[in-house]
Design a binder for these strands. Structure first.
Length: 738
DNA sequence: AGCTTGTCGTCGACACAATTATTGC
DNA sequence: CTGCACGAAGGAAGCAATAATTGTGTCGACGACAAGCT
């Protein structure tokens, strides 16, 4: 099969100065395209289509046009000539594509939206208000923003920060307010804009390649039987439904349409989380996991829509007890010899295929092949796990709480059973050296302290326990020994940290769950501080050094020596400010920003970055939240006390609690807490750089006057250089959205 | 006039429930 | 292949758990103030 042709593109629009471009008013001024073949590193074609003249760029085909109409039509012709299989970009499905269509409509270019592969098929836009869906027949659209938002949890999803995260490189950020200036300048400034635009087309291609999206998407589409476009535009349930339909057709069964069947609004009981015996464990903790718990339960007990026996069915059919399973939630399902379920069959296939993929993965040496196989096994795992969720989705296509509540009820029994067996079997009475103790467990796992001192011994006992307990369950339910934590810091349910060992020689990594280190709603300062402390405690086993590190950080914070970027907190905006029942910092800030500059204000679904500034005593946090860039620009003082009290003290207290007798006293009381100063961020490193630079930030010429950042030549391009400078300072990308 | 006493409002501390965001599995 | 009439549609995995913050209510301390007493 010929390799896919992939087109990555980005458009720039001239907005009225400082505002987001409106497709009804503001023209498309540049389109950058990068064409690659799947599997090839070098771009096949790189070009830029611009309005008005533009200086040449080495290696790039720069095409200048007199009218916007010519630019759009040139792009249409380019698409038809290149005939790409996949069209990608960043936020193309919500911005670039609808914008182009709208412009063509405004300019009355009826012949523009003929981009598909079916002759004369027009590009169609579905949905008027909220969801814009554009169909280009025969070509797959793949929006990297959507993909990354779906697959990765990041603090910011700007192309800049995403590129920094995955590719280790940043783009040249051009402030939205100067795009018009660059366009209205000369051929040279338009060249600058073109380079920027081209980079925005190039980065999505790099991301697609690096994250192996083509492989994983094709695999996922293949195993679940949905089009690739569904993977980004629709949820999990469509995949399960697709598999169900596929299987049902083979069996000559029909699936009822139950959607209009009133509101099944009640919820069902989920999994058991064992009580966490909090503490710092300096003995190895073995972790036993049920492999694919919920799928194996559904297979073991033949749970399916077509095996469920309702009370009426039971009366009518009068089934003998030996041909049914009675679940702990008191539902009845027939055994496979009466009727084999569709869901177990789907799951069997998915799991068998995943096993093959894993085996292939082990064999594979070539990195390219490994990438394919790894994404394949991952796709199968995800598919298997979402089958249970589908049956419990009361607002979904085919809810069946009898199945989902049965699954969880079996799960609850099994984790309790596993705990009981471990604690009954591994005792001094039975000839073992120590009494084993289950210190924690969540849904499908038990953490066992066998009492032994070495990782090796814990592994041996773990394997023994897993094997003997597996034997007490129905096939294919299996308890596996997975890893050893040593040492292990258990804080509460769902929050712990430890060194993760899979072989007795060396630990694999430091693993943290639920703690501030893995949460996105903390500032970087807290995240870094907690990570560093845990590292010192768990890896170095040096508590005094961790304490000293905390003290130094507190001292720096008090003296305002912490970079502002480390103090930025981000939270997702889930609804508009008016719809919040209680006022929230990010919600109120979003409301204020909306009033300030509506075009750049955060929307629902965006993450809102903010810092806490000083204010009158007793002021609520939501009154003190402020946009980090606004804080920088206006030299507003931040509130170190807030960060000390509300951000870093509690998380540190929780971590040190099992280790130090009186953590608050040890960490927060002492000479390092005395040096209080109320300086503004202008004293911090980053702004010193920006304000007091003696050479011009634009052209690096030395400036004679003292209070200027730009020489007379570069005056007037402040915003552009501001962006560049801050981006180079490894700073702005952390929170500059859009 | 100077003191005592009672009332009233304010403030801070604290407990508690509700809301919100996020993660674990 | 094109044009027209007609009908349908939107669209969604789950629960358990922690922690921060807001909002509300209660309680006690404290000071201001006025009235009354010596």
């Amino acid at each position: 099969m010929a390799p896919f042709r992939i087109l990555s593109f980005d458009i720039e629009c001239a907005g009225r100065k400082g505002l987001f471009p409106e497709p009804t008013h503001d023209p498309v001024i540049q389109i950058a395209n990068v064409v690659t073949l799947q599997g090839c590193d070098l771009p096949l074609i790189q070009n830029v289509m611009t309005l008005k003249s533009c200086s040449p760029i080495v290696g790039v085909d720069v095409m200048s046009f007199d009218t916007e109409r010519d630019v759009l039509l040139a792009w249409r012709d380019f698409i038809r000539e290149i005939d790409p299989d996949i069209i990608i970009g960043y936020n193309i499905c919500k911005f670039d594509l609808p914008y182009l269509l709208k412009r063509a409509e405004v300019l009355k270019i009826a012949e523009f939206p003929i981009l598909g592969r079916i002759r004369n098929s027009r590009v169609r836009q579905y949905g008027v208000r909220k969801s814009k869906e554009i169909s280009i027949k025969g070509r797959v659209q793949f929006d990297l923003l959507q993909a990354i938002q779906r697959d990765y949890k990041l603090s910011s999803y700007s192309l800049n920060s995403v590129s920094a995260h995955f590719l280790g490189q940043q783009k040249e950020d051009v402030h939205y307010s100067i795009i018009s200036d660059l366009q209205n300048g000369n051929a040279e400034t338009r060249r600058r804009l073109a380079v920027y635009c081209l980079k925005d087309a190039y980065l999505p291609q790099r991301l697609l390649d690096k994250l192996m999206y083509v492989y994983s998407s094709v695999e996922m589409a293949r195993v679940t039987g949905v089009p690739i476009s569904f993977l980004l535009s629709k949820g999990q349930s469509i995949k399960v439904l697709s598999q169900l339909l596929r299987k049902a057709k083979q069996r000559n069964l029909v699936i009822p349409n139950v959607k209009g069947q009133g509101s099944v609004s009640d919820t069902f009981e989920g999994a058991t989380v064992l009580e966490a015996k909090a503490g710092f464990y300096e003995k190895p903790i073995a972790t036993l996991d049920f492999a694919s718990l919920y799928p194996s339960i559904m297979m073991a007990y033949n749970l399916c829509y077509c095996t469920l026996v309702t009370p009426e069915d039971a009366r009518r059919l009068n089934l003998p007890p030996e041909s049914v399973h009675k679940t702990p939630s008191n539902e009845t399902f027939v055994k496979p010899d009466v009727q084999k379920g569709i869901l177990p069959e789907i799951l069997e296939e998915l799991i068998a295929a995943r096993k093959r993929a894993k085996a292939d993965l082990k064999e594979a040496k070539d990195p390219f092949e490994r990438a394919v196989l790894d994404s394949r096994q991952l796709a199968l795992k995800i598919s298997a796990n979402s089958v249970y969720g589908f049956t419990g989705a009361t607002v979904g296509q085919l809810p069946c709480l009898e199945i989902s509540s049965s699954v969880t009820s079996y799960g609850r029994e099994m984790i309790k059973h596993a705990k009981k067996i471990v604690e009954e079997k591994f005792t001094t009475m039975a000839g073992y050296e120590y009494n084993a103790e289950v210190i924690y467990g969540d849904t499908d796992s038990v953490m066992v302290q066998f009492g032994v001192q070495t990782v090796d011994a814990a592994m041996k006992l773990g394997k023994e326990a897993a094997d003997s307990i597996s034997g007490t369950f129905t096939e294919p339910i299996k308890l596996e020994f997975e890893k050893v934590y040593f040492p292990y810091l258990l804080i509460t349910k769902k929050r712990y940290a430890g060194l993760y060992w899979t072989n007795p020689e060396m630990f694999d990594k430091m693993d943290t769950k639920g703690i501030e280190t893995v949460r996105r709603d903390n500032c970087l300062l807290v995240k870094n501080l907690v990570t560093e402390c845990l590292y010192k405690i768990l890896v170095d086993r040096d508590v005094p050094s961790a304490v000293q590190y905390v003290k130094n950080t507190i001292s720096d914070l008090r003296k305002n020596r912490i970079d502002l970027s480390l103090l930025v907190i981000t939270k997702g905006l889930t609804k508009t400010a008016d719809n919040y029942a209680v006022k929230t910092a990010h919600g109120e800030l979003a409301k204020r920003l909306q009033k300030r500059v509506a075009s750049t204000a955060p929307n629902v679904g965006d993450r809102v970055p903010y810092v806490i500034i000083t204010a009158a005593k007793g002021a609520k946090a939501y009154e003190r939240a402020e946009d980090p860039i606004y804080v920088l620009e206006n030299n507003i003082p931040i509130d170190p006390q807030y960060y000390l009290k509300n951000q870093i003290s509690k998380p540190l207290e929780r971590i040190f609690k099992p280790i130090l007798p009186d953590p608050l006293k040890e960490l927060f009381h002492g000479s390092h807490t005395r040096a209080v100063s109320m300086s503004t961020p202008s004293n911090s490193g980053i702004m010193k750089f920006a304000k007091k630079q003696l050479s011009c930030l634009g052209c690096k010429a030395v400036i004679s006057g003292s209070n200027r950042t730009l020489c007379s030549h570069c005056k007037g391009r402040e915003a552009e250089f501001y962006c560049k400078t801050v981006a180079n300072g490894n700073f702005l990308f952390l929170f500059l959205s859009k």
